[in-house]
């Protein structure tokens, strides 16, 4: 009972954090609420007994990836008046309307959900490592190749116009 109530509160806070990330106007605020969301996600993992996943969630996402995000946001440091204004277009309204059935389907699934009880004493890092590097070695390696492909694709997309090596030079002087 306490477990369910705690998890519900954590999940609501988590949703609040991620919604704030997408609607807050300042980039650093968005980053901060995303970090808050990752922390709450790791609390949820911890409550469910998956301590290793909880710690890895903080180290990898909140501690490493988000530091790079914050670094870039701070390095560009766009003044608030230069940020693009958000306009609600017809496409936005249509996509919101289309997402309502999905929301209903997901919430039906969620309302029938029971918090799984994991015996945290029995899950060790050795078990996780054995699953990952012996039982599911091929899927694991394939996913790493997928990530590599995404990385190469991102670099290719970013370098589309090869002529301009210094892309920030033209008309985007944010340094004050």
């Amino acid at each position: 009972m306490i477990m369910t109530v705690t998890l519900t509160i954590l999940c609501l806070l988590l949703i609040l954090c991620f919604v704030t990330t997408s609607i807050i106007p300042t980039p650093v605020g968005a980053c901060a609420s995303l970090i808050g969301g990752f922390l709450l996600l790791s609390f949820i993992y911890g409550f469910l007994g998956a301590h290793f996943a909880a710690v890895i969630q903080i180290i990898v996402y909140a501690g490493a990836i988000m530091v790079v995000f914050v670094f870039v946001v701070m390095l560009l440091n766009v003044p608030t008046q230069d940020l693009p204004k958000v306009k609600i277009s017809l496409a936005d309204i249509l996509s919101i309307l289309l997402s309502i059935p999905v929301l209903i389907l997901v919430s039906i699934k969620i309302l029938n959900w029971q918090a799984p009880m994991i015996d945290s004493q029995n899950v060790e890092m050795k078990d996780i490592a054995r699953k990952m590097f012996i039982d599911y070695l091929w899927p694991f390696e394939l996913i790493s190749f997928l990530l590599l492909t995404a990385l190469v694709a991102a670099i290719t997309v970013a370098h589309k116009n090869k002529g301009s090596r210094y892309m920030l030079k033209e008309g985007s002087d944010h340094g004050r």
Binding site: H51, F52, V55, I58, G63, A64
Partner: peptide, 14 residues
Amino acid sequence: VGAGFLLFFAMSSM
């Protein structure tokens, strides 16, 4: 906890 001193690194990276 089961993750041992990895929790320490989580704190230090935050």
